[in-house]
Amino acid sequence: MSGILNSSIARKVAMALSAIFLLIFLLQHFLINFTSVISENLFNELSHFMGTNILIQAVMQPVLIFAVVFHFVMGFILEAKNKSARKIKYVSYNGGANSSWMSRNMIYSGLVILAFLVLHFIDFWIPEMNYKYIQFNPEDPTRYYGELVHKFESPLRVGAYVVSFALLSLHLLHGFQSSFQSVGCNGKYTPALKAFGKYFAILIPLGFIFIALFHHFNH
């Protein structure tokens, strides 16, 4: 590919590919978390698998970290470039007349998600790495459920969780269909894809919120 990421379209496609990867990750993450509502054992089993499988830990985890970092760094770069493409602003600009709020404010919904991810990193990932790879604690395949329930005790954390997922929903309401347009998919399947995207963008974040509230109020 000539001059990778040097052209506007290459950047746009790369942005979309990282986003599509994150969409798939999000679905996978949701499905596993949701089992915690149904069965303690199943949730422990799946978490144990994810936490100890060499392919997940050595390959998918670095890929995920790369995708997240790439996505938000690229998001900042694009936002800066796009802002500077119109140095003299309009005195009167009616963006709401021709585009959705979500589509114009991806950087703000993204920033809230980023804040959440930082929290999630400190909250989950660092203790997890510490537990497994620094302190070399013996693996206890039944610890995960208890840890999850413990996380959702604090109303403050649950509140932050709810707000973040509400903004993730807004991010995806535009982002889902946008990522397909970016990679060049727009044709007779687009109306169906847009409808599916809407359900995805609302139901998955709502599902995460449900899981948090479920454990908060049930224990």
Binding site: S8, R11, K12, L78, K81, N82, A85, R86, G95, N98, S99, S100, S103, R104, M106, H174, Q177, S178, Q181, S182
Partner: peptide, 9 residues
């Protein structure tokens, strides 16, 4: 010109 972000405007 800026990058497209598919706002559809």
């Amino acid at each position: 010109f800026g990058n497209c972000t598919n706002t559809g405007a």
